[in-house]
Every structure is written in C-alpha cells, then in structure tokens.
C-alpha cells in the first residue's frame, strides 16, 4: 500500500504527464503568454470563439506539476463558455477545480493559466 500524497494525487500527476488540450491553435481569437518569473514556468494560451463561446482552446509551455495540471483543468472547464462567463472565473474556482490543498508558495503555479485567461476583455 502506498500513502496518497495530499498534493501530488494521482489525478494531478496524471494531468502533468498527460495534459489535456495541449498545443497552439492556428489563427486564434485570443493568444496570450505569461510566465512565473520566480520559477520560470511559461504558458501560452490560445482560444477560438464561435458564436461568442469558446469553441477550441489549447495551452503550450512548460512548468511544474501544479501549473500544468491546473491549466489542463482550466482549459477543460472553459469549453463552450461565453466570454462573459470567462471573466467571472476566480482564483477560488481554480483551486476547487484542482481539489488539492494549495499552499501560499504554490498559488502562482495554480493560477498561472487563469492569470493569462483574465487578460481577456
């Protein structure tokens, strides 16, 4: 029997090894990149809208298990959401999507994808 680690749960590690929605969309309507300067994580987020809602979304870059799992979950979550709905996603929403205890030192990892998404107007 192996103990379950509270932070590095299988779902997190699985998303880290096999991320969802990875890539770069061609001719995206939204294309933004940001980095965590303290640890060097970089994510680029591209989105295509159809009828005012997210039709395709992809993320690209590299980072720790937490930032990669979070952006996978975030990109799953925003599919078919309207631009208006995207602007209402909060840090708390992101943490509850992850479903793990996120310490103060890992908040920036958990919310890097969200920070990029929040550049949407």
């Amino acid at each position: 029997m192996t103990e379950v680690d509270p932070m590095y749960q299988e779902i997190i590690l699985d998303l880290y090894r096999h991320p969802h929605n990875q890539g770069i969309l061609e001719e995206p309507d939204f294309d933004q990149e940001d980095a965590n300067t303290s640890c060097g994580d970089i994510i680029r987020l591209t989105i295509k809208f159809e009828n005012g809602a997210v039709a395709h979304v992809a993320h690209h870059g590299y980072g720790c298990a937490i930032s990669q799992a979070a952006v996978s979950l975030l990109t799953d979550h925003i599919k078919e959401k309207t631009k208006e709905e995207l602007t209402h996603i909060t840090v708390d929403d992101m943490i509850s999507m992850l479903g793990i205890p996120v310490s103060h030192t890992r908040i920036k990892c958990a919310t890097l994808g969200l920070k990029i998404l929040q550049k949407i107007t």
Binding site: C64, I66, R106, C109
Partner: peptide, 25 residues
Amino acid sequence: THPHDIGDILNRDQIAVRVGHHCAM
C-alpha cells in the same frame, strides 16, 4: 520532475533549497 515540485516536497521536511533559474535565465 520539475524543480518547483522538488523544492515543495523537500520543504515539507524543512529542507530549504532554491528552485528555478536562479536569476540566470
């Protein structure tokens, strides 16, 4: 394994290391 994950797990045992690019990107 990503350095931030390594540093975080080491921190649980009060092992203080630095991770990332160390101001030499």
